[in-house]
Computed example of a mutant assay.
Amino acid sequence: MRIRRGVYLPAAAISAGAPRWETARKITQARAVSLSVFKSSDFPPVLTAEAALALHDLTSWLETTDIEYLRPGAPWRGNVKKLPAIVCNGTTVAAVAERRVPSSSITETTKEVAGILTPPLWAIGVDSARLLHPMAGVVAMSSVLSRLTDFDMYRQRQSRDREKKLRTKILAYIDSLPPFQMSRQTRKIVEIADSGMDTPGEGYVLWLLHCIVRDAENGYFATGSGTAGATHIFTQFEIRANGSRYFADMAIPAHRVIIEFDGGEKVSTRHGQYEFLKRQDDLRMAGWSMIRINIFQLKDPLGLADNLRVQLRDCGVPVV
């Protein structure tokens, strides 16, 4: 499979039965590694943002990502190269742009992954927060926090302690720098991002909630007495109901509201359907209101925002 002129990937590198997302990620990884054609330069590229996440085998919003990189010290030329679409085992991976970012990374420190230079993982998250759409930034930064804190929903106290320490260090580092373009937005995305995010769809919904819930805060990182405030949003929130232990995708405990993102896998089997209905009944009997969001609603963010506003307002949650 031709990645670019003079660079090919053996067809056997991707199994015939691989799901679409895995095929797309492996192609992105191959495209990223193909940046090594620049290695003979005095200014080797430093891969960042979503392509760098793919190199680390981490989740980002897009399956097929642009290849964004920095070239510290090199004269600026606004060069954008197009990498062609690739058909692999019946799956078409779309064409993407290979683009040099017209700024420096948040840090000069680099590390090598598969022969390509990248910023440290935490800095890739921050670069994503400042370079991408805020929603994609939340998804990317959440993936980074989850990996670096080794998040475990069954050991949340320890996981959240690690997350809080890491987030505090990242925010302190951002605050120590001279103000840069999008610095306030970048800081806010780091505050919103959450290691408990399990899928890109959940990251999308988490971002949207912070857009429409008045004075929303990440509950695990909120300042104050430690109690759940009226607009504190928690991910993977533990609830015990009818003798069972459940984890809500997102919850606003002060109003006993759960927001669940349904990607489809929860009800793909008969047993899954039974567990899904039992979980829903147990939580409702325990006094929780449930707002369900499916993957198709993500295609209409304005419509989804309006729908969420109505349902949250009915539950007493202050919205804007």
Rank of each mutant, 00 (worst) to 15 (best):
A13P: 08
I174K: 00
V93T: 12
R147A: 15
V138N: 04
G137I: 10
H210P: 07
N218H: 02
L208E: 09
K111C: 13
I124W: 05
Y8R: 05
S103F: 09
S36P: 00
T235F: 00
D262M: 04
D314K: 15
T186W: 05
T91F: 12
Q273D: 02
W288S: 11
A228R: 06
I27W: 02
V257I: 06
D249G: 06
K26E: 14
L145K: 14
V139C: 08
A230E: 13
I295L: 06
H56R: 13
A230G: 02
A85G: 11
R270F: 01
F234M: 03
N307A: 12
A222R: 09
I212R: 09
D306T: 05
A18G: 11
F43V: 12
M153S: 09
A74Q: 15
L312P: 00
T28A: 13
T59D: 15
F296Q: 12
N294A: 03
N89E: 10
F237Y: 13
D161A: 15
I239W: 08
T109Q: 09
A30Q: 09
A193M: 07
R240L: 10
K26H: 15
A228T: 08
H232E: 00
V205W: 07
G264L: 04
S225H: 08
S105W: 01
S143A: 05
G73V: 13
A54L: 00
D281L: 07
E108A: 15
G196S: 06
D281W: 03
L117E: 12
T199Q: 07
H133E: 14
L58I: 08
Q236W: 06
L277K: 12
S40F: 06
P119L: 11
P19L: 04
A18Q: 06
A49W: 07
L206W: 06
V46F: 01
A16W: 01
E238H: 12
S104Y: 00
S104W: 00
A123D: 10
L83P: 10
I252Q: 11
F38M: 03
L304F: 01
Q311G: 03
S15N: 08
V93H: 03
A12S: 15
A286K: 05
P301N: 09
T186I: 00
P179Q: 14
L166R: 09
R214D: 06
K278T: 14
P134N: 00
R292M: 03
G226V: 08
E217D: 04
T231Y: 03
V213R: 00
A12L: 13
S183C: 13
D150M: 07
Y173S: 11
A24G: 07
V319F: 02
F234N: 08
